[in-house]
Amino acid sequence: MNLLVVILIQASFYALLGMGYVLIYRATRVLNLAHGDLMVFGAYLFFQALVATGGSLTLAIMAAALGAALLGAMVYLGVMRPLASYPVAVGVLATIALGLVLRTIVTVIWSAQTRYPAELLGRTGQPITLFAGVNVSGIDALIIAAAVIAMIGFPLLLRLSTVGIEMRGVAENALLAAQRGINIHRINAFSWAAATVMATVAGIFFSIKVRLGPDIWYVGLAGFAPALIGGMDSLKGVLVGAVIVAAAEVLAALYIAPQVALAAPFLVLLVALWMRPWGIFGSREELERI
């Protein structure tokens, strides 16, 4: 039972990360390889806000989310929008460069020193025993809750709100959406902002749970496999992909060796791509368009 909880926690974290990839891909068809660095930047904003507010979790999260949203929108308007008329590969390359720039900025501002935001919050790593043999720590419970909220909230946003309907319109056919009067750059900026907030949320959880340092950008790449397995343009696909990846990782570490755990999701990814290249819930048309 505890094993299922471990898989659920990990899947929730990967789902939070994977959603960022999907949001940006849906809007701009760009695979954002700077997602890990946006995650780190957002986590540092959280840390800075935590220090400034004397350890107020709520205020720090709000400040970090606001900062992340601004950063995401600025990245789109300053970096991605000017490249909109170029092939998609140019945009992908731009995200690699963006990642390197962000990594350098983080090191210059906050140094390479390892930080432990959990210390500023008091200790949240202690487990709560739900029932015999099943332990969940406070931070893990928050990760699951955040993933559930995001998984319910985003589809509702896309279905019911004006901006969500516009996002779907732009994702479906940007040219047609523009002709219908939708400001596609505003919508794309919103998508980048939302994805950066999602990356920041994941970064906040990781920094509280493990540690914060400029080197943790690679953690952000962990959301890539779930997004691809589930389908790059499908939010519900991310959830399924995240569960598959988390289960593959945990079971490989438990029954084979931790070294295999790192490769296991990508092995699953290879099999998934071979069987269904557009992902479990992905759109076949989107793949052809790429």
């Binding site: 471990v6 990782e249 570490a253 931790p258 755990a261």
Partner: peptide, 11 residues
């Protein structure tokens, strides 16, 4: 580069 070591810990 392990993002999560929960499986290794469970082991």
């Amino acid at each position: 580069a392990a993002a999560d070591v929960s499986g290794a810990a469970a082991r």
